[in-house]
Design a protein around this nucleic acid. Structure first.
Lengths: 305, 305
DNA sequence: CACACTTACGATATTCGTAAGGATT
DNA sequence: AATCCTTACGAATATCGTAAGTGTG
């Protein structure tokens, strides 16, 4: 039993005429006749009673009609769906991104993506930097956005931005009047930062230790928003990735360029080598790079690459 | 997209190896490779990522697996069902039979049929003789069992039995002592019979009128069982088709051969000419004729043909 | 006799298997 | 070097359309 045979059967069953059906099928009468004959022989009995003058369904043919209809409908739907996936009229991407990215740059990017591929579903996993690597490695997601891995992580990294740390100070602090600030100066204030397992916290401590400096940590949180709110309310100062500048300002804190040392690290897309991206994932990857380019023009604090 | 392609896809998706899959498909590696390639080209994208060392599903391929499974399962089920219908492992027959037949000879016949074709559904329409003709004519049923039509009814008739009228008298009547009885004698008793539209009633009156006799009707019913019960309780006598002898005896009445005149008429199978019988209907038809033959040997009152 | 399905047959297209090629372990 | 998928190519097979055949109204 082949798809062609069932399509032919349905066409004949509908019109009850070989002559009419063979036009719809773009087939000669003889070919149609043979096709039906082959189907009948394959199934072991007649589906139509036909003399030269009229065509009618047998009882078994009658039974096949609804089955055939369902079969062909399902068949066409499946084919359609697959084709839609390939043409990105449908589909699904899974993405893991670290919170600072997921909460700041990602939303407008997703908006662009959605505008271009409205039926493609995007699942965003807003997880900490380490888990981004883990999820990509375990193939729980196709794409990850995170800091560039330090150790060779067996993951492919495509840089998007060069992110540097900026200082965050209360609006009413005298420091808020400066254009930029040195770490040495900043660290004379009570320091508010993320809790230890955080990549950001670890990065900070490593870089500063190398320069013989130490964080005068006064308050710790595991959420960047809390850090921002604490700074805004005058409890102390902080240093965060430039990526979060917008968020900090929204929370009522002031941001300054930080130097001596400039601490920076690439943020980019992580993929698992050898695992081919779905068409949908590839499209999202492309949008991520395009949007990066767009930002380069408008020029934010974090520098696109 | 063809059935063969999808089967090939599933085989490869399951084993994740072309080499293994091609054995299950009874196909050479190259043919399988081309089949998958054709499927991929037809759908517009890759379903497997494959280097010589391992084969893996793409995201789209992953999406196709459940679809393909359902598609193939439905396909095979449909094919199976049709094949079962043709081999009478399944199916459905519709039959209309007049009550005297449906209630007496038919049940053991259906038992034989069911024993032979356990999965074939039989729908019996127990309707009066005229409606049997009507239902066959309207193709509401494939087969009918009824008296031979008088007027050319445009239906095909295959005789099964020659049924003759027998006398039914109360057990305690002096008539019950006789071996046989003439109509003239029977008609001296109060007569119980079916109501007018009945074919049996009309037949009786027509035949007797031709011989100058008339039914001394005392009681009328539209059900044969009621007639039997009335006779059994001594209200009068009746004459019924020999087909109903068993039923009459069960109701407590006595049956006698009736003569002068012998009124007889063929009972047989009605079909609509030009309408091919389903395999199931043909099988039931055959059983009806076989059972008739079996009865000829054991020899009942109504004579098989 | 005209219409509609079937059968016959030659041409075309598809599919298959063998064999060679290429890549990975 | 061995394994496994792909590509190439000739052979077998299947499918198609034209045309002749058949039966029915």
């Amino acid at each position: 039993m082949t798809v062609k045979q069932i399509r032919a059967f349905l066409a004949v069953a509908q019109s009850l005429s070989f002559a009419v059906a063979c036009e719809r099928l773009h087939l000669s009468q003889s070919a149609l006749s043979l096709t039906i004959k082959a189907l009948e022989e394959g199934l072991g009995g007649r589906l139509f009673t036909r003399n030269t003058r009229n065509v009618a369904l047998t009882a078994e043919g009658e039974a096949l009609v609804p089955l055939a209809r369902r079969l062909i409908a399902d068949w066409d739907n499946a084919e359609d769906e697959l084709r839609q996936r390939f043409t990105l009229q449908r589909g699904r991407v899974t993405l893991a991104a670290m919170p600072s990215f997921a909460g700041n740059l990602l939303p407008p990017i997703l908006k662009t993506f959605r505008a271009r591929y409205p039926k493609v579903n995007v699942t965003v996993n807003d997880v900490i930097n380490e888990q981004v690597l883990e999820m990509v490695r375990d193939r729980q997601v196709e794409l990850g956005v995170a800091f560039e891995p330090t150790t060779s992580s067996s993951l492919a990294f495509t840089p998007l931005y060069m992110d540097r740390f900026i200082a965050v100070v209360p609006l009413d602090s005298p420091l808020a009047q400066l254009d930029d600030i040195a770490w040495q100066t900043l660290l004379q204030q009570p320091f508010i930062t993320l809790q230890r397992p955080s990549t950001v916290r670890v990065m900070l401590e490593e870089h500063l230790q190398a320069r013989g400096m130490k964080l005068p940590v006064e308050f710790e949180s595991h959420q960047l928003a809390t850090v921002g709110r604490m700074v805004a309310s005058g409890l102390g100062v902080s240093a965060v990735p430039a990526l979060c500048a917008g968020q900090m300002r929204e929370l009522g804190a002031h941001c300054l360029t930080l130097h001596d040392p400039v601490i920076e690290r690439a943020i980019g897309v992580l993929t698992k080598p050898g695992v081919e991206l779905s068409a949908a994932a590839q499209a999202l990857f492309d949008v991520l790079r395009e949007e990066n380019l767009a930002q380069r023009i408008s020029g934010p604090k974090h520098q696109p690459l």
